[in-house]
Design a protein around this nucleic acid. Structure first.
Length: 999
RNA sequence: GCCCGGGUGGUGGAAUGGUAGACACGAGGGACUUAAAAUCCCUUGGUCCGCAAGGGCCGUGCGGGUUCAAGUCCCGCCCCGGGCACCA
């Protein structure tokens, strides 16, 4: 009888629940192993085929460790706060908790169908008040802490207050302030501290707390009245509705992760994480050594950070970021208009755009000059958007001879360029080499770069013009969101001073509101809540970001029901660090850094005994999707003579959002422009064709279309797409129009990118499971290739894994019944096995498989272990092997990969074991040991190569020495004839590998 | 632009510096079958020579280099994917 995946998988899904097979207790008598997956955000699109890739891999390891006798914690939950649920709520008015609950239920159903060994009794959801109570609690701990640079750890803020009361503040306490608060309050004595009023004290403490209120730049969309993620901004307009977006400074809660920069960097060395992730974090933290240099400007000064103080004599101007607080102050009246116009334009460009755009240099002179700290020369002060406000001090000393960006700026504006290094050809480009010798006039001349740096710093310190400084690129993390669907921040305001909600009053539950949008005056949605106050004082209205809950959730799984603590001390001590963490590399610098930060913090404050959350990390590659991208008109620019205007054509009141068929775009610019002109003339009849005085430009952008709307020929289902899109324009109604091609189609462009709900290119696993079963899906996803590698989803090879499972099944059911068949009491499809002793060849196949599969699981090379199972099955099939002694151990090693079929076969092999309700099935069986004696070969088939090219093969006993092999090879007639009587120059014999003859 | 990955047959991929293409899909041919499904067997990187047995040459994104030997190591490029701080 054939392998019936549906019956088998349904049966065991129920049976595992009944037997609580996967429940795990905190049992200190057994060695522990903690396998964690990055939990999913339960999106409305359901689980897609990319999610299980990592889950299957970790499930294999979790099950393998169970077989090896470990007590394995392998939990799952939901990262259930987030933007998509909120947007859906805005569109439909449904409470996000409701849709999130539905989505999670759907995820659970899908996950259950794949046969994971998750202990669901430990499930967590970040949006559950019983969970976020502790997220809020961590926030309060952060608020209640400062970072003591002397102890190099976080400590209670009371200790700082006590220190202020006895010693005041001598400034060095502020050395950790590298974040968004730029101006420090200054030094004060104990007496002064005591004389401060409450407001001043709290203001001072804000500069030290690890959770603090500051100002930060955000993408503000006035039309939507809210802050947008970079993700939601495309080409300067909001993705929803296409409204303009500007950058604005707003009060924000932030976390002082910068205090941990050095420890986050140092900690990486101990971790068994991929080099690429560690490298990404190192670059993200971006430690650089250099100097802080002050350039006096009248009574004031401009502070710059440079990694190259050795090039100080090459400074020809200073450049300030457009957002720099001193720009206004240093702008002369004559330059004011020009500077303000530039600043307004520049600061609304995104940072990424500013960094990426090296083609166009832009900037403006402020009219002021600073004094060079060494030469006293007048240095012009410019504003340029290539300088970013958030890095260093937001100002650079420009050395066009030694820095390419400065060089380009200088060339563009005709500023002087001084050669700083010997042999530099400054006419062509800057010399950024660090091996050079300094050539600019001054006391650094003739020194090598490293020596010159030391000397320059010493000189700066001597003259009080600066000092050596380590700078980090890492910035403090913005922690407030102008959103509804997140953890409320447990803070209330008394006279505008923030105070923490008392721990006993947690959780601060998310209030009900009537609409999930910002208020009319642009306050966050929580401002709509009735009576959003604490002891009569107003509560904070921003909520926490998506990464808050995920920064500590691994601890909650250890003791998920605890009401007294985030997890009991015993649970934390027993489970400790995560032994294997599996998730996507796209989290390299977001989640994985915050995760480490919070762990270090909780360790500092004595709550947990370890300061890194995960010992080993494996990044599964992304299963990519093939997206459909539809071009649309982003901007229409009409120029008349020298005046540009983006006239009424872009007025949303009058013109629809115009999507253009890719088939038209593909026909070339001229054709495209003609079609677009025709379309736009229908909205704006006075629009003229290009002439001597008028020029019209259409700027296209691309928007992802749900792959469900796209047919095989890339044409989209126009009406369905339009309806869906119109629904998303909840406010600011705008019509939608299309430029069709000659077959009245609108086609999309195809692109491979990450599979994600936001890219609308998601495929789900349900259909596969329906057709082939979960075991096939599991094997297939593993068989696709190395776990860390990304690949586009494609089901072409799935038949192969399905066939393998049928063949494996048949090994147990198609043998000939022998004299003493193995009794089987189970099922209508009796086993047909014998207890005969296996042959040498059968044992070789078995042990080769045990060896390969065990080694492959250890190095997480699952695609090759699946291959090995296939090889074994094919070979045993060819041998017509029906020996229980060979096949039974194979069931155990297959079980982590294909648990349902393995459990079914195991039950048929050992029905008596299942009589007990507490029997945990095949999972409880020990991992079969590999015995090398069965793999010993006595001869080796040597490839014989000439100059590295293999020409023939010769078999020799492996007992032969190198010399004996060489002699035997040279004696061979075929080798002799190839040598044509000449003596070889050299013969290389690598035992059990190769013979190479050099002629 | 910056940082991190990747590039091997028609396709997914395999290969401690040592026989490139394991395993699987697809394709072609055959067996079984009334037929289909299922199953099994053979061929399958390109190209050239040969009736055949067999043999030659080329081949791991491109160009160099190290080595007896390079998919693998080094240098310089090209292309694709991911991240770039409010998607999760």
């Amino acid at each position: 009888m054939a392998y019936e995946h549906k019956a088998i998988e349904t049966k065991w899904r129920k049976e595992w629940v009944k037997r609580s097979t996967y429940c795990v207790a905190n049992d200190p008598s057994k060695p522990k192993y903690y396998v964690l997956d990055m939990f999913p955000y339960p999106s409305g699109a359901g689980l897609h085929v990319g999610h299980p890739l990592g889950y299957i891999a970790s499930d294999i390891v979790a099950r393998y460790k169970r077989h090896q006798g470990f007590n394995v914690l392998h939990p799952m939950g939901y990262d259930s706060f987030g933007l998509p649920a909120e947007q859906y709520a805005i569109q439909t008015g449904q409470h996000p908790a409701k849709t999130t609950g539905q989505n999670a239920a759907r995820y659970r159903e899908q996950l259950d169908r794949i046969g994971f060994s998750f202990d669901w009794s430990r499930e967590v959801r970040t949006s559950d008040p019983a969970f976020y109570e502790w997220t809020q609690w961590v926030f309060l701990q952060l608020f209640d802490s400062w970072y003591d640079p002397r102890a190099d750890k976080a400590r209670p803020i009371n200790e700082l207050v006590a220190r202020f009361e006895s010693q005041g503040c001598q400034g060095q306490d502020a050395s950790i302030l590298t974040g968004d608060i730029e101006e420090f309050v200054g030094e004060f004595t104990a007496e002064e501290w005591k004389a401060f009023d409450e407001r001043t004290r709290q203001m001072v403490l804000q500069h030290f707390r690890l959770a603090y209120l500051s100002e930060a730049w955000v993408n503000w969309c006035p039309a939507l009245g809210t802050v947008l993620a970079n993700d939601e901004v495309k080409d300067g307009v909001s993705e929803r509705g296409g409204h303009p977006v500007e950058r604005k400074r707003m009060p924000q809660w932030s976390l002082r992760i910068t205090a941990y920069a050095q420890r986050l960097l140092d900690g990486l060395d101990q971790l068994d994480w991929s080099e690429s992730i560690k490298e990404a974090q190192r670059n993200w933290i971006g430690r650089s050594e250099g100097a802080l240099v002050r350039f006096p400007v009248g009574e004031d000064f401009i502070e710059v950070f440079t990694t190259r103080p050795d090039t100080l004599f090459g400074v020809t101007f200073l450049t300030l970021a457009p957002e720099h607080v001193l720009v206004g102050k240093f702008t002369t009246e004559a330059q004011r208009n020009a500077v303000e116009a530039y600043v307004n334009k520049a600061k609304n460009r995104s940072e990424r755009e500013r960094q990426a755009d090296v083609e166009h240099v832009s900037g403006v002179f402020t009219g002021s000059y600073a004094k060079h700290p060494f030469t006293g020369a007048d240095i012009p002060i410019w504003v340029g958007d290539y300088v970013l406000a958030g890095y260093g001090t937001g100002a650079v000393m420009a050395v066009p001879g030694g820095d390419q960006r400065d060089w380009r700026f200088a060339k563009h504006f005709g500023l002087p360029i001084i050669a700083v290094t010997e042999g530099a050809d400054i006419e062509k480009e800057a010399d950024e080499s660090k091996e050079a010798t300094i050539s600019s006039e001054g006391f650094l001349k003739g020194l090598k770069v490293p020596a010159a740096i030391q000397r320059a710093i010493a000189e700066l310190e001597k003259r009080g013009a600066g000092e050596g400084r380590v700078n980090y690129r890492l910035r403090d993390a913005a922690f407030g969101r102008q959103r509804y669907w997140g953890e409320p921040i447990p803070i209330y305001y008394k006279d505008d001073i923030p105070y923490p909600v008392a721990e006993k009053d947690l959780p601060l539950v998310l209030p009900e509101i009537d609409k999930y949008q910002p208020t009319e005056i642009g306050e966050p949605p929580l401002a709509r809540a009735k009576d959003w106050s604490y002891e009569g004082y107003p509560l904070e209205t921003t909520t926490m970001p998506g990464w808050a809950g995920s920064s500590w959730y691994f601890l909650r799984y250890m003791d998920p029901k605890n009401k007294e603590r985030f997890a009991s001390q015993e649970a934390v001590d027993y489970w400790g660090q995560v032994d294997l963490y599996v998730g996507g590399s796209e989290h390299a610098t977001g989640h994985l850094l915050y995760f480490r930060f919070w762990t270090k913090f909780l360790h500092d404050r004595g709550w947990i005994p370890f300061d890194e959350p995960a010992r080993k990390l494996v990044n599964q590659g992304m299963i990519q999707g093939v997206s459909a991208i539809l071009p649309f008109v982003n901007k229409v620019k009409v120029s008349q003579d020298y005046d540009d205007f983006e006239g009424p054509v872009m007025d949303p009141e009058r013109t629809p959002l115009v999507y253009v068929s890719q088939s038209i775009v593909a026909k070339g610019e001229e054709y495209l422009k003609r079609q677009l002109l025709l379309k736009y003339q229908s909205y704006w009849p006075s629009l003229k064709i290009d002439s001597e005085h008028t020029k019209i430009e259409f700027h296209l952008s691309g928007s992802n279309v749900d792959v469900r709307f796209v047919q095989g020929d890339d044409a989209i289902a126009i009406e369905e797409f339009k309806n869906e899109k119109l629904k998303s324009f909840s406010e600011a109604k705008r019509d939608i129009d299309f430029v069709l091609d000659e077959s009245s189609r609108v086609t999309a462009r195809r692109e491979v990118e990450k599979m994600s709900k936001s890219k609308l290119n998601v495929y789900n696993p349900d259909d596969i499971i329906e057709r082939y079963g979960a075991d096939t899906l599991r094997l297939y996803e593993m068989f696709l290739g190395p776990i860390e590698q990304s690949k586009p989803w494609d089901t072409n090879g799935i038949e192969g894994t399905y066939r393998f499972l049928r063949k494996f099944w048949n090994l147990f059911h198609t043998g000939s019944p022998s004299e003493a068949p193995v009794p089987s009491t189970h099922g209508v499809d009796p086993l047909r096995l014998t207890n005969d002793a296996p042959t040498k060849e059968e044992l070789r196949v078995l042990h080769a498989t045990l060896k390969k599969v065990t080694e492959d699981i250890e190095r997480m090379s699952f695609n090759t272990s699946v291959s090995q199972f296939m090889i074994a099955t094919n070979e045993l099939g060819a041998l017509k092997c029906d020996k229980r002694a060979v096949l039974e151990p194979l069931v155990v090693v297959l079980a982590p990969f294909a648990p349902h079929i393995a459990e079914e076969l195991w039950q048929k092999l050992n029905p008596e074991k299942y009589a007990s309700d507490t029997y945990k099935g095949v999972l409880a069986e020990p991992w079969p040991a590999f015995d090398p004696q069965y793999l010993v070969e006595d001869s080796f088939n040597y490839p014989i190569s000439f100059n590295g090219k293999t020409r023939l093969q010769l078999e020799f006993p492996i007992a032969l020495s190198k010399e004996e092999v060489e002699a035997a090879v040279l004696a061979n007639p075929e080798v002799q004839s190839r040598l044509e009587g000449k003596a070889p120059k050299k013969v290389i014999v690598v035992p059990r590998r190769i013979v190479n003859i050099v002629v």
